[in-house]
């Protein structure tokens, strides 16, 4: 069940959380060239508006492929996707205005400053004038980089880059946010800050689809999770409910029980 939360922060919000489907993926099939098996195979997923959904899976399970398809990086071989009730293929440009993407690899120009990066991506989202300036300043504040905004990204630490990478996906105040392992390879402090930021975004009503390896993190953040293996969702539900039903103490134990201990990317 998705709870209704009234926004209490000054961050631009989508307002009261709405009922309904934010993302609906049906029977997606994705096969890479020269790959033996499909990356996604009969993959179906429904994420409700305002939900914080965690997509958990081993390396090569299909998490990044799913995020890439949802964000329009490549189309599936078959299957359909709709975001906020709009068919992706038919309303791509409209849909691209309402979702934000935080890729797993850093999506920043190292030889531009944080402000220049945000201004660049903001302009391409169609922002301009005071609206753009306001969005950039908010994102800098959000990522705690206001004082260092003029420095080249190449001089930033890994954690600063990750925070900025996240902020760049929020410039246009998206209704749906796709996060592909946003906390990978950073220290505890930066990870904690990103967690707080994501919780804040969720509180404000942003629908979040998030992939991770970190089970504890998913348990802490997500209102619902899906476990993906072999390009297919094999289990999904609220973390507490899943643990109660399966009798496992934590998500990692449940995850290993469902997916086995054999390496997936070997």
């Amino acid at each position: 069940m998705v709870e209704k939360v009234v926004v209490k922060t000054d961050y631009p919000s989508t307002g009261v959380k709405e009922q309904g489907t934010a993302l609906l993926a049906t029977s997606l099939l994705m096969q890479y060239r020269n790959a033996e098996s499909p990356a996604l195979n009969d993959f179906s997923l429904q994420v409700q508006k305002g939900e914080f959904f965690g997509l958990l899976g081993a390396n090569g399970a299909g998490k990044t492929t799913a995020i890439s398809i949802f964000s329009g990086f490549f189309p599936p071989v078959s299957g359909t996707i709709s975001i906020m009730g709009m068919d992706f293929q038919r309303h791509q440009n409209k849909i691209k205005q309402i979702f934000g993407l935080v890729p797993q690899d850093l999506a920043l120009y190292e030889n531009l400053s944080a402000r220049e990066n945000l201004l660049f991506f903001g302009k391409l989202y169609g922002l301009g004038g005071h609206k753009l300036e306001g969005a950039v300043e908010k994102c800098l504040a959000f990522s705690r980089l206001t004082d260092l905004a003029g420095r080249l990204v190449s001089t930033y630490s890994g954690g600063m880059k990750r925070r900025l990478n996240l902020a760049a996906g929020l410039l246009h105040n998206p209704q749906v946010l796709f996060l592909d392992e946003p906390t990978v390879g950073i220290d505890a402090q930066s990870r904690n800050l990103i967690h707080e930021q994501l919780i804040e975004l969720h509180r404000m009503g942003t629908t979040i689809l998030y992939t991770s390896h970190y089970m504890e993190e998913a348990q802490e953040l997500c209102s619902r999770i899906g476990i993906i293996d072999g390009g297919k969702i094999i289990e999904q539900g609220e973390p507490a409910e899943l643990l109660r039903k399966s009798g496992h103490k934590n998500l990692e134990s449940l995850f290993l029980h469902l997916t086995g201990k054999q390496l997936r990317d070997a």
Binding site: F73, K96, F99, L101, P103, A107, L108, L124, Y125
Partner: peptide, 13 residues
């Protein structure tokens, strides 16, 4: 080779 290309693809441009 970085995440920029996928981000650029996700933009309405």
């Amino acid at each position: 080779k970085s995440g920029i290309w996928i981000r650029l693809t996700s933009l309405p441009v």
